[in-house]
Amino acid sequence: MSDADDDEFHTFVTGRWPSLLRTAYLLTGSHHDAEDLAQSALARAYVKWEKVRHSDDMAAYVRKIMIHVHADGFRRRAVREWFTARLPETAVADRTAQVEHRGALVDALARLPLRQRSAVVLRYFEDMTPAQIAAAMGTRESTVRSQITRGLAGLREDGVLAALTGRPQEAPEHPSAPVALKGMPR
């Protein structure tokens, strides 16, 4: 192939890769197998590039190649399951509670204002320092610290942190509750 053909193939791959990968995923049901399938189809398309580029619809031609590659692989696939009297798996702890906690935490984070949510996620899930967060968010470090503090307070008020740690939720003070003045008992 000439350099112009290589450039045209590269442009095609760059523009169509997400679509081809999506189609491959729908065919295989696995991200890893989808990448392999898309790459195999593109390798075959590269060999036949003259035919592909002169077709009416290059993307359709490559999808057709992909379907044939997938069918060929499916036909050649050997059975990799063996039937035995005992199960080889070991018992695994039930992780249902973790899934529930994660879902509750994600929901609570979604209820926080955007800047608070961003600061909390970057600090506690991405393990970034306040200085790194400030640079990423384009703000001052003191603003980041206050956003983190407010975000954590919002999560506490939401009851999520209490549920995740197993501690009872603190009851909010009633607005008419007596206020202790400095140096004065309640």
Rank of each mutant, 00 (worst) to 15 (best):
S146R: 12
L87S: 13
T149W: 11
W82M: 13
A104Y: 06
A91L: 12
K51C: 07
D107E: 15
R115V: 14
D36H: 07
R75K: 09
V144F: 02
E141R: 10
F9S: 05
D107L: 12
M1V: 09
G15W: 03
L164Y: 02
T149N: 12
L27E: 04
R115G: 07
R16F: 07
R140S: 15
P168N: 11
W82P: 03
A71E: 14
D107P: 02
R75A: 06
H174F: 08
R80T: 14
L42E: 01
V160K: 03
G138Q: 01
T143R: 06
A4V: 13
M184C: 15
F125Y: 09
D158Y: 02
G15P: 06
R102L: 12
D107H: 09
A180Q: 13
Y124G: 06
A34R: 05
A78E: 15
V160P: 00
W49E: 10
L164K: 01
A93L: 10
E157N: 14
T143H: 09
D56C: 01
P18M: 04
P113I: 12
G103S: 06
L42M: 06
G166H: 04
P18G: 06
A4W: 05
M58Y: 00
L161K: 03
D72Q: 05
A97M: 10
T139I: 08
R123E: 07
H101E: 08
V52I: 12
R63M: 10
S30I: 00
A134I: 00
D158I: 04
R53Y: 01
E100I: 12
A38W: 03
G73S: 03
L42W: 03
V13N: 01
V99T: 10
V62Y: 00
I133C: 03
E35P: 03
I148W: 00
Y61S: 11
R53K: 14
H32K: 10
M137W: 00
H70A: 13
S146Y: 13
T143W: 08
A78S: 13
V160T: 15
E157L: 07
A34N: 01
A85Q: 12
L161G: 05
L105C: 02
A171G: 05
Y61P: 02
P178K: 05
P185Y: 02
L105W: 03
A136I: 02
S2K: 00
T23R: 01
L105H: 01
Y46G: 08
V120I: 09
F12S: 01
P175L: 06
A93R: 07
M1I: 07
G151D: 02
A153R: 13
F74D: 14
V69P: 07
H174D: 15
T11R: 11
A91G: 10
R16Q: 14
T90V: 08
R76A: 14
V92R: 04
V99N: 04
E50G: 09
V144E: 00
G166V: 04
A85Y: 08
T143Y: 08
S176N: 09
V179Q: 12
L112V: 05
T23V: 11
R117M: 04
E81I: 14
E170T: 15
A38C: 03
P185H: 03
L20A: 04
R140V: 11
W82L: 14
L20N: 01
V92G: 00
D94A: 04
